[in-house]
Design a protein around this nucleic acid. Structure first.
Lengths: 220, 220
DNA sequence: ATTATCTTTTGATGTGTATCAAAGTACTTT
DNA sequence: AAAGTACTTTGATACACATCAAAAGATAAT
């Protein structure tokens, strides 16, 4: 759990963690339709969440990494509304939502924290809607890469190098593109000297060029 | 505010409403960047929310009607992250978020309600992502119309007739389409005898046909 | 090590939607 | 009532991305 709590509060916060759970690569943390009981704080590993339409189309709705919270989709109906799948071996803290609610009635700082996490997710999805509704393929991929390295950097990792945990198809699903289009955009960036790609490994050589693609106007 | 509260709780809930505010058609309830203080419960009228990219592209992120809550985008950063614009003369209840938080520490039923509203918004945005990422123009419009009448019907209005409060361009922005494409999809539905359209007035003649377009698989 | 499977890349072609353009319709203002 | 403004419809054309196809490269299984 994050900063902003004092020592005493931290102690109380331990109460919300019922247990830890390991999830192997490819395994489900929860499935759409499962009864909702808990939120999950990712300790290690990497997840994707996705929704599936009745006719089988899959939409990746997000990629989550250490320190992030998943499961909030389940609160409204007491059933999960998406699947959460580990893209690498992972460990999560299981936090029963009833406990979170009980404790956040006593700890305003926790209450505020829960509200912010949910609001952050709403805002994130707003910007994905902007991506999907208004941006072209290369803009989407540029935004995606910038967002990923920014989050990795916030966790002490490089801001220029990363190893993708997901396939081109999963990136495409998230960005509303086909895997071939994602691959072509990677190749284009590589040809233009903006990034270096070797399979899942990506090195960002010219972050400003990526930002310029994502948001052309800023640079004129 | 909604059901699920007893008389005593209802009385307490009045405390969260600081005042009412009228918003005329075309006016802003709040603007991206405004300091966040309150959530708004729509009493009457119809709103759109939208985000704007730095280079001026606009994405409508939702349409909200009586009984729905807007403003949750502001919680995470204490500043609003989208614009809320009245599409017809409206009245809202201003509910200072600090008061909501105070009271929801005392009333578990209110606490739960707030969580559900935010979770519902997350789930709604998930399904918009599915629309934008996977569906074709006519599927998007079919889903949009079905969702609108369903919500209107839940408010005691007709489940087959509606008057759109937004332009083709605003529908298009929400659905990731250009206004001409929206117009053509309306015309197509009309030619096929699925709906009757006259400008903003829409009558749904064959709801099953719309559902079939939205989700072809279900009918085989 | 060898085979099988999965993932990625690249090319050729097709298509759904965007763009450009213009006319028609409704609404607002004076 | 007339003129101006905003919105909608429809047609012609363009283009970005999808689709189809095949090969190359990685990863996993035996």
């Amino acid at each position: 759990m994050p900063v902003g709590f004092n020592a005493d509060e931290m102690k109380r916060l331990d109460e919300v963690v019922e247990k830890r759970r390991r999830v192997k690569q490819g395994e489900l943390l929860f499935n759409s339709g499962d009864t909702f009981t808990s939120l999950y704080a990712i300790r290690t590993g990497f997840f994707k969440t996705c929704v599936t339409s009745e006719d089988g189309r899959e939409q990746v709705t997000g990629f989550q990494m250490a320190g992030e919270i998943i499961g909030m989709d389940g609160i409204v109906s007491d059933h999960h509304n998406c699947n959460a799948i580990a893209l690498e071996d992972a460990e999560v803290c299981v936090m029963p939502f009833a406990t979170i609610e009980d404790l956040s009635r006593e700890l305003p700082v926790l209450q505020r924290h829960v509200h912010k996490i949910m609001s952050r997710e709403i805002v994130r999805e707003n910007s994905v809607m902007m991506l999907l509704g208004n941006m072209r393929a290369e803009e989407r991929l540029a935004a995606f890469l910038l967002n990923l390295v920014q989050r990795l950097h916030a966790r002490g990792l490089s801001q220029s190098e990363l190893v993708l945990r997901m396939t081109r198809e999963e990136i495409g699903s998230y960005l509303g593109l086909k895997l071939e289009t994602v691959s072509r955009a990677f190749s284009k960036f590589s040809e233009d000297g903006i990034i270096e790609v070797k399979q899942r490994y990506v090195k960002i050589i010219a972050p400003d060029a990526l930002k310029k693609i994502f948001n052309p106007q800023t640079y004129f």
